[in-house]
């Protein structure tokens, strides 16, 4: 018995609105399912094939290129508001394969596979000879810089104790000799208060987790080092902002503004 009509695919343009809709749905999918690193945005649709699907619908087989943005995946900032990591900052590209089902006008991802890779050092150096390159995240200077920065942040955040979740990016800056790091933390869902912590490993994460993200620079200087750290704690309604006067006595908790319920920890970009 002859087989049914061979399932033939159609090849729309890569820039067709329908193809772009499928690609955007696929990028939203990876950003909502990635557990570490940064959000990615659509840069180019490389290939598309559309297969009919029995009994209804169509499956878009896509190959797309993405680019890393500066928003951590835990950051509730909408993707449209996240800027793309620039080439001189050592950009990171993603290569993704997707199969996206279109049925009743809705797109749903059936399969997703992505690999990301940083731009080559030559490309960065060609554009900016003096720009720092990405450093291995387990580099001793990186690990030390994250440790110092998180300790400094904990020392300032009245009473809460945040634990490291992920070192997401690091660069060894030649001049001035310093280490730049970006990392995510979780907390203050631990049962430790910053001032009492002797062995962080003994702190247990409590149920109500909060996530946050820090950018820090550890600068080496004669006889010591300086750390500057800026952190944002992601609230459910998006990052809130409060600044802490670095000169204030950390032992004296900063009173939350009268309009902010005491229960909600309003912490945001804080320079230590």
């Amino acid at each position: 018995v002859p087989l049914g009509p061979a399932l033939a695919y159609r090849q729309p343009n890569c820039d067709d609105p329908e193809t772009e809709q499928a690609a955007l749905a696929a990028v939203d999918y990876i950003n909502s399912h990635m557990l570490q690193g940064y959000k990615h945005t659509l840069n180019q649709i490389d290939k598309v094939k559309v297969w009919p699907r029995r009994p209804m619908g169509e499956v878009f087989e896509l190959e797309i290129d993405t680019l890393e943005t500066t928003c951590h995946v835990l950051d509730p900032t909408p993707l449209a508001n996240c800027s793309v990591r620039q080439l001189v900052e050592h950009a990171v590209e993603g290569d993704c394969d997707f199969r996206v089902l279109k049925q009743d006008g809705q797109f749903s991802v059936l399969f997703a596979k992505c690999d990301s890779s940083p731009d080559s050092a030559e490309d960065v150096r060609r554009l900016c000879p003096g720009c720092p390159l990405l450093a291995p995240l387990n580099d001793t200077k990186v690990v030390h810089a994250v440790d110092v920065a998180l300790t400094a942040f904990n020392a300032q955040s009245n009473g809460s104790y945040f634990r490291l979740l992920e070192v997401s990016r690091a660069q060894l800056v030649p001049l001035p000799p310093s280490t730049y790091v970006e990392f995510a933390f979780a907390g203050p869902a631990t049962d430790c208060a910053a001032k009492d912590v002797t062995d962080p490993a003994k702190c247990n994460l409590l149920a109500e987790k909060q996530y946050g993200f820090c950018k820090a620079t550890l600068t080496e200087k004669i006889g010591g080092e300086d750390v500057a750290v800026t952190c944002t704690v992601f609230q459910t309604q998006g990052p809130d902002v409060v600044t802490v006067d670095p000169g204030a006595d950390p032992a004296v908790p900063v009173p939350s503004p009268p309009d902010v319920p005491v229960a909600s920890l309003v912490v945001g970009p804080m320079v230590v």
Binding site: N13, C14, D15, L42, N43, Q44, I45, D46, L67, D119
Partner: peptide
């Protein structure tokens, strides 16, 4: 047999459907 003089067929520019446009820059 009437032979149609060969008509130089100039292929119309093939619209390259893929890859699509680059939205930011190529790494």
């Amino acid at each position: 047999t009437v032979v149609q003089p060969g008509i130089a067929v100039v292929p119309d520019p093939v619209l390259r459907p893929c890859p699509g446009r680059i939205r930011y820059f190529k790494v």
